[in-house]
Amino acid sequence: MAALSTVNDPELHRDLVSLGMIERAEVTGGVAQIKVNLTTPACPLKGQIEREVREAALTVPGVSEAVVTFGATVRMAAQPALPGVKHVLLVGSGKGGVGKSSVAVNLAASLAADGARVGLLDADVYGPSVAHMLGQGAARVTANAERKMQPIEAFGMKFISMANLSPAGQALVWRGPMLHSAVQQFVKDAAWGELDYLIVDLPPGTGDVQLSLTQTVQVTGAVIVTTPQDVALIDAARAIDMFRKASVPVLGVVENMSYFVAPDTGNVYDLFGRGGSRKLGEGYPLLGEVPIDMEVRQDGDAGIPAVLAHPDTPAARALIGVARNLAGQVSVLAVNKELAQSLADLPDQLTVV
């Protein structure tokens, strides 16, 4: 344990022992068996942690081999966002057409594929698309024995969409109070069960749904999806300002349609410019740059997230990276809040005996 205390979590910048991440450390016949309990199953730096833990264990006299295994427990900051739900994460944009729903679906699918318990709420009431992207457009939301909405399951995650509650193709002509009531039902009257992350696909803009959500549940943070050109960045800045006013941390920015790789030549084209998201200012991590990829669109139309259907394509790899970077940001936020709370709980005056 002394040797392992020299290994820091690369994102949390504290040692694994003080963070309580070493679940087991045993030595038998010169072989060290070490189990590390990560702060998220989607840890982006798992390989680095494994390498450094092994190197530290091999410095102990008598240890000739180190076997490192992993578990994961998603940390939760203070109170749960909802009963059984550790984190509510909003995926928003200042305008439509930037691929926000595609990003939200693939983030959720990637986190679920890594082993997290994930829910996906399609809060774009007027233009729901999540059900189609998950191949569940014909499915219907039912009620359980407690008369709560039973989320539909697909690809290892739970989801609810207005598309599964209203007749296909029917336009919803609702005013603000009806939207507020619907949002409250989606989050409070649904049997989400035990979730590590509830991903919420927001409608474009900064309107009633966004306001209702931030007032209804304890939101861990938000992700901003934008494209590189200025017209999208102007609206993304408005979305950031809205979350700031609602006291919702912005966990990072996703630059979608960042570039295009020609499949025949491999040449890279910056169709909408590139790197524009950095203009949004410091303090908002760039979670990833996702290229334009026809297979993302084709997979969405076919009802299979691209990160599952074609995980080796450039866009899918980028989206998987975004999901893991997001999980890392959530872990950093949760652990920092744990530390701040523990310091706040200390007595005002300490007496040295």
Score class of each variant (00 low, 15 high):
143 A>S: 14
278 R>C: 11
74 V>D: 07
183 V>S: 04
157 M>D: 05
195 L>M: 12
79 Q>M: 13
203 P>D: 03
163 A>H: 03
138 A>L: 10
344 A>T: 11
86 K>N: 14
36 V>G: 10
253 V>N: 07
308 L>K: 02
318 A>D: 12
68 V>T: 11
84 G>V: 12
132 H>C: 01
73 T>E: 15
86 K>M: 07
239 A>F: 10
239 A>Y: 11
208 D>S: 07
184 Q>P: 01
311 P>I: 00
270 D>F: 07
154 A>T: 03
344 A>M: 09
192 W>K: 07
169 G>F: 04
92 G>T: 13
68 V>C: 03
120 L>A: 01
134 L>F: 11
241 D>P: 00
153 E>N: 06
161 S>W: 09
174 W>E: 09
84 G>N: 13
256 N>M: 12
234 I>G: 00
25 A>C: 08
134 L>V: 00
290 V>L: 08
70 F>Q: 08
89 L>G: 07
66 A>V: 08
274 R>E: 12
256 N>Y: 10
317 R>V: 14
278 R>W: 08
35 K>L: 00
136 Q>M: 14
77 A>K: 02
18 S>Q: 14
209 V>H: 10
239 A>M: 06
263 P>D: 00
249 P>M: 01
27 V>I: 14
273 G>F: 09
155 F>V: 06
157 M>G: 00
99 G>A: 05
350 L>I: 14
228 P>L: 09
246 A>M: 15
330 V>W: 00
78 A>K: 14
6 T>D: 05
106 N>G: 06
347 P>S: 01
100 K>W: 05
295 E>K: 15
204 P>W: 02
280 L>K: 03
260 F>A: 01
235 D>T: 04
17 V>T: 09
269 Y>N: 10
330 V>Q: 04
148 K>E: 15
54 R>S: 07
117 R>H: 09
22 I>P: 10
145 A>N: 11
208 D>A: 11
23 E>K: 14
172 L>H: 00
160 I>P: 05
266 G>H: 13
251 L>K: 09
244 R>I: 03
16 L>R: 04
